[in-house]
Write a protein that binds this DNA or RNA. Structure first.
Lengths: 197, 197
DNA sequence: TAATAAAATTAACAATGTTAACATAATTAA
DNA sequence: TTAATTATGTTAACATTGTTAATTTTATTA
């Protein structure tokens, strides 16, 4: 990497780190160009020298958050033995991450991805966000002969839609009303999905 | 209703009808105070004589849309005989409504409900939006002794979370990629939920 | 050190939600 | 019927947003 490229990458990371901090804490509505640039120690116009527009910058954060999220999933899976516990642990970690950072859930699932530009990669990343939470357990089941490949794909989709749907209502419509009820419902749903062929 | 109340109600309905038209057509981002007031034939400031703020007005529309949505569900259910077909028909109508009006899906599930004020009724309405699509069929199963009350509640939740989750990815993350794939996935998921105890 | 290129900032624009000051229309009191 | 009062609507204004253009500051090269 050339010297100018390195500096460019440093600058972008200043803005991205500032944006991430705001998204984690105050959420999307506070993540304005001016607030982000302020936190990064630059003028708001400088931001536009490094990012095409604000939403490009915001969506760049998704990659980092997904990495962080996956890092929080790994120990939950590793500490489980049975395939079912792996899936339950992974999903619970996934849910807990978004419970802890509601602003990041907003960013992943509520924010509209602009039409323009090449952001289908980000959309795919979000679509597959939950995969690391269940792939290990599902693969174990497949290797044990308890599920066919096809059935595993079906279960993955069921988990994907169902858990995201549950979180959507929880985060945005306050239903279920509190965390313990969310966990109760989550475990019941996971049992139902995993216990049945 | 007194004369002044009637006039007040007329005024609010002008704004609400204008807002609904915009939400149906161009979506949330076009539904600004100025655009809505323009379409209603009044100044933007007049809007604030009848609504506390813009989001109050916007969320008032949810009630009407839910009624309209339920009206589109009724014939789909009535034309089905078996409980399963009723549920499938109801859910399909529910999904098709939001496919036809993506802006209304945005409003129901992507827009943040403000913290202030008494909007928990709207949140509940949205949480239960899908109920009319499956209650008939589930009740039929209960009365036939094929499901317990408790199991019916469980299935309702499963359908609620799963179908909303599917629609969330479709509407906002372009996955599945087209309508026919969405319907394919929808039918597969419905089969899976309904066929199993 | 002077000329040039690069990088960052200030100024500005249009659009947003919202409020205050004002004008107009409708109603009531004399 | 006219004067005073209330209700209703509009214009003006403000703060905030994303974004761009003009301009200044900093770094690099001759």
């Amino acid at each position: 990497m050339s010297a100018t490229e390195l500096q460019k990458q440093r600058m972008t990371s200043y803005f991205i780190e500032a944006a991430k901090e705001i998204l984690r804490g105050e959420g999307l509505k506070v993540a304005s160009a001016r607030n982000i640039a302020d936190k990064a120690g630059y003028s708001y116009a400088t931001l536009y020298n490094y990012f095409e527009d604000l939403s490009t910058l915001i969506f760049e954060c998704v990659r980092d958050f997904q990495t962080e999220l996956e890092e929080s999933i790994v120990p939950a899976i590793d500490s489980s033995n049975t395939a079912k516990d792996k899936i339950r642990g992974g999903i619970t970690a996934w849910v807990n991450y978004f419970v802890q950072y509601p602003g990041i859930f907003e960013l992943f699932f509520l924010e509209r991805i602009g039409e323009v530009g090449n952001r289908s990669d980000i959309a795919d990343l979000i679509y597959n966000s939950i995969v690391p939470a269940c792939s290990d357990g599902l693969e174990q089941w497949v290797s044990e002969g308890r599920l066919s490949e096809e059935q595993a794909v079906g279960k993955l989709n069921t988990l994907r839609f169902q858990i995201t749907g549950l979180m959507l209502y929880y985060s945005n419509r306050k239903n279920p009303a509190d965390y313990s009820k969310l966990m109760q419902l989550l475990n019941r749903q996971i049992d139902q999905i995993l216990d049945l062929k």
